[in-house]
């Protein structure tokens, strides 16, 4: 699996030969009789930052959760880094992957949640070290050094020994980003990462995400932060009612939405 170069300055350009990092084909998802996703077709190229906006209930978070198989899709196909998510195709038949294989796939994908979901019984440092030590079997000392470097990178080098309850929401979310990065994912998913934050704390989290984008990380960001989408996003997707209504360059979609539903939504939030 090709790792993206780290620390590159300026927006990353995808390697010419690489296929899409995420490819969705007619993805359908229902909860019981409620159809949440009604056929999503999307592609995210390596190094691309895709922002997904839309009203609540539009299915944007569900789609994000499908990408790392936290939700099973009912129909369609979903690939990450060329691998079918959650299934193996062989001889024209689909085989469900074992828990162990799904876990292996998820190591390629970092996820940041709206409610942070830090492990409250561990310090910030232990939160970041946990997966590399337990899942990747890295030596503790090595994982520790890397975790400290990551905490430094999100501006929390001095909070390594703090428990989540002792940190502000913005700091917790930055620890959560460091925790996801510790697994060296090829793709980062953000599920409304700033929605649970006090307004004055939003900026510090967006700043870390922006730096990550500049460093060339492939990102799918479900967000309500139109400023972030405009400034950092390479593409913008507007979802409503379980379908992609409009997709394009963020500046164009935000300034000049083509679809009436997009116009309606943007007129309410901008």
């Amino acid at each position: 699996m090709s790792r993206l170069r780290k620390g590159a300055a300026g927006p990353a350009e995808p390697p010419a030969d690489a296929g899409p990092m995420v490819k969705a084909e007619q993805v359908h998802k229902s909860f019981g009789r409620l159809e949440v996703l009604k056929g999503i077709d999307l592609e995210v190229m390596p190094g691309e930052v895709m922002c997904v906006i839309g009203p609540s209930g539009s299915g944007k978070s569900t789609f994000l959760r499908c990408i790392n198989h936290l939700e099973k899709i009912n129909a369609g196909r979903l690939w990450v880094n060329g691998h079918l998510v959650g299934y193996r195709q062989s001889g024209g038949k689909l085989y469900e992957l074992r828990d162990r294989e799904v876990a292996a796939q998820r190591r390629e994908i970092g996820m940041v949640f709206q409610r942070f979901n830090l492990f409250p019984h561990m310090t910030a440092l232990e939160n970041v070290m946990e997966a590399p030590v337990r899942v990747k079997r890295q030596p503790k000392q090595q994982a520790r050094e890397k975790a400290l470097a990551l905490l430094d990178r999100v501006g929390l080098g001095d909070k390594a020994q703090s428990y989540p309850a002792q940190l502000s929401g913005g700091q917790q979310q930055r620890v959560a980003i460091a925790r996801a990065l510790a697994m060296e994912p090829a793709l980062m998913l953000f599920d409304e990462p700033t929605s649970a934050l006090d307004p004055e704390l939003v900026g510090e989290v967006l700043e870390v995400m922006k730096q990550l984008a500049v460093d060339g990380m492939t990102m799918v960001v479900v967000t309500h932060e139109m400023g972030f989408a405009r400034e950092v996003g390479d593409s913008l997707v507007f979802m409503d009612g379980g379908v992609v209504v409009e997709k394009g360059a963020p500046r164009e979609v935000l300034a000049n939405p083509q679809h009436p539903r997009t116009q309606d939504f943007l007129s309410k939030v901008l």
Binding site: L70, D99, R106, R107, N117, F119, E130, A131, V135, R179
Partner: peptide
């Protein structure tokens, strides 16, 4: 959310 976060990090069910 704790289980989801652990799953998303690739931890097994037992872990």
């Amino acid at each position: 959310g704790q289980q989801e976060a652990a799953s998303a990090l690739g931890m097994s069910r037992l872990q």
